[in-house]
Design a binder for these strands. Structure first.
Lengths: 350, 350
DNA sequence: AATGCCGTGGCAAACGATTGCCAAAATCCT
DNA sequence: AGGATTTTGGCAATCGTTTGCCACGGCATT
């Protein structure tokens, strides 16, 4: 069977119409100042007349560069990440387009089929670089993304120790600051709403809380940690479940901190149904910086992640590797998050 | 310059290791039952040992099919759509993976650069089909997506009149039903929160409201329409602006309907700040079915769009064209949305 | 006027897989 | 056992572009 007839005009058609050789057309398009102005014009006119678009497959095959970047998503279980994915996609796509690259998405979950697909793309030459979001490298039975000789950049998760350029935010430090803020407002007992055990972001953020407590002479026993089961797919449900835990506590903390906005939103909504007042009875701070926080009741304090900057930085790091085989930075690039205090926080009642 | 050395093992390496010809390897991989079991095993072993992955570019070039589908997004101004994009991506990606296809994203906005990029992909053979979300076909100076001989499926917007297979929901009918519900509860004056003038979904949904009013003997003057300016990028801000309009009204309607959840969330939040009670003073119904509606104050009634089913249907329609050059259905495939009533709706106060 | 250089353009060989066509081998039949 | 039929394997052309290399012509230098 022949390749499907499909195709529009090819470079040979342009060459014929312009009365020059194919190679001249190729050079005129790739490197305009290596052909005479006259020839260039003839070629451009011919190309425009035919509506010619170069065949990307053929080009990629020849030059061994697909001009396509793959973004590997962590799957929905990562509360600390799933909410900001649209913003991440937006910023990465914008930065890629600016440099003439395309964006490919191979997964929204991380099941075996997706892992295999990611590896096919990486090893099959379909992509020339990967940005991996807050998760480890895909593997299957006998391949790992680490072995595809592809530039990889990690975003949100620090993998600089494994020699992958990384761009992250200051999870731990900003959470410490937020906790210090609450301590300054007189809070002494805390409720920490976490995603599944072991998640990098949750560990870091909880670590920040603990550090602030220690610095203030408090101890780890002054925070009650509510950990979502793996089976809680959505942050909203996890937040609701945390609210049940909270209201059952004999000695309720006066401040709650959440690792994601959706958990905090559901938590805050439900505890108010149980008669707990926010912020009078409990102050709430969450993480992510979703715009919807402004319209919560009461407006929800949150820690805004610099997603757009991180996306742009990740692309810059990646293209520096792809195009110039640039050096791998020593440590992670840290772009700080910002605490936004709203009405969900007040001084502790004593 | 030679193509970058990069690449892992190629088919010739597998053939050499297995002691067979390249063509035998190709056939063994593509059509396993056309080679002997013995040969097949040798080849599979050799491929596994080398960690061989076929080069997608080379294959695509030869067979003229990229196994990649492009999704064209409408840009952020389309309030009726932007909120459900992650769910759309999820369902489309899942359906594509199942059939061995990849997903490419070329735009999150619809500026000139994005349009050009989309057309490059379409005309350059990088993609073998497009799913276009609630928007018209990309064009640039001398190309239009319509002229790329590519299968196209429209999702959310009915383009079956232009011979594009379309999968949509019943915007008009479900909004009519919702309005009837409110009328049955005694509501007689309505507030309609709309996106920018002329948006297909907003027109349809408003049309549904009007139809219900007419059917009940009411008239178009019984609904106050608040239209977002183009410059209001986010639905939340548009909703907030609508709330200002609402509270200024001398004779306030007792029911509000919004074309998207985020507009409704901001609207409901703000009017309560102004002392308007929901649902006592005004009932609110919105559109989209975001999970967060459950946790609003009060829980927000909404119309849930069957996004997952629509995504799967769009992929099915597209692949039917791509793989079997199947017929173009006569009309749109309509998958109905579902009204979910929550505490934001009650009988009208009289 | 002859030599050397530079700027242009053309030929043809890649890139890596697929597949039509034919030869060889294996299987089956009489 | 010999011929017919079915498998199986190998050669080589092909997809559309890029690019090393060479040839040719024009210009300046001596």
């Amino acid at each position: 069977m022949q390749p499907q007839a499909g195709g529009g005009p090819v470079m040979a058609d342009v060459a014929r119409l312009a009365g020059v050789a194919i190679s001249t057309v190729s050079r005129a398009l790739a490197n305009p100042d290596r052909v005479s102005a006259e020839t260039r014009t003839k070629i451009n006119v011919a190309a425009a007349k035919l509506g010619y678009t170069p065949n990307a497959m053929a080009r990629n095959l020849r030059v061994g560069n697909s001009k396509t970047v793959l973004i590997v998503l962590p799957g929905p279980l990562h509360y600390g990440v799933s909410q900001i994915i649209p913003r991440v996609l937006y910023s990465i796509n914008a930065a890629l387009i600016e440099h003439g690259y395309n964006l490919m998405i191979a997964n929204l979950v991380r099941d075996a089929a997706s892992e295999g697909r990611i590896l096919d793309l990486a090893f099959g030459g379909s992509v020339c670089g990967c940005i991996i979001l807050s998760s480890y490298l895909p593997k299957d039975d006998n391949r790992s993304l680490a072995d595809a000789s592809l530039p990889i950049v990690s975003m949100l998760l620090d993998m600089s120790g494994l020699s992958y350029p990384s761009v992250v935010t200051n999870d731990r430090a900003v959470m410490r600051e937020a906790t210090q803020e609450l301590i300054a407002l007189g809070h002494r007992r805390f409720f920490f709403i976490s995603g599944p055990e072991g998640n990098y972001h949750d560990v870091e953020r909880f670590g920040g809380v603990i550090e602030a407590l220690r610095n203030a002479g408090l101890s780890e026993s002054d925070v009650v940690k509510s950990t979502a089961a793996e089976s809680f797919q959505a942050g909203l449900m996890a937040g609701e479940r945390a609210s049940y835990e909270f209201v059952r506590l004999a000695d309720r903390p006066t401040a709650a901190m959440s690792v994601s906005d959706d958990m905090a939103i559901a938590f805050m909504s439900r505890i108010q149904d149980f008669g707990v007042k926010v912020p009078e009875d409990v102050s709430v701070i969450s993480f992510d910086g979703s715009p919807v926080c402004v319209y919560c009741n009461p407006p929800l304090s949150t820690i805004e992640q610099p997603v757009e900057e991180m996306g742009a930085a990740a692309v810059a790091l990646l293209l520096n590797r792809v195009e110039r085989n640039g050096p791998i930075p020593d440590g992670p690039l840290v772009i700080p998050s910002r605490l936004i205090l709203r009405a969900s926080v007040s001084a502790a009642r004593n």
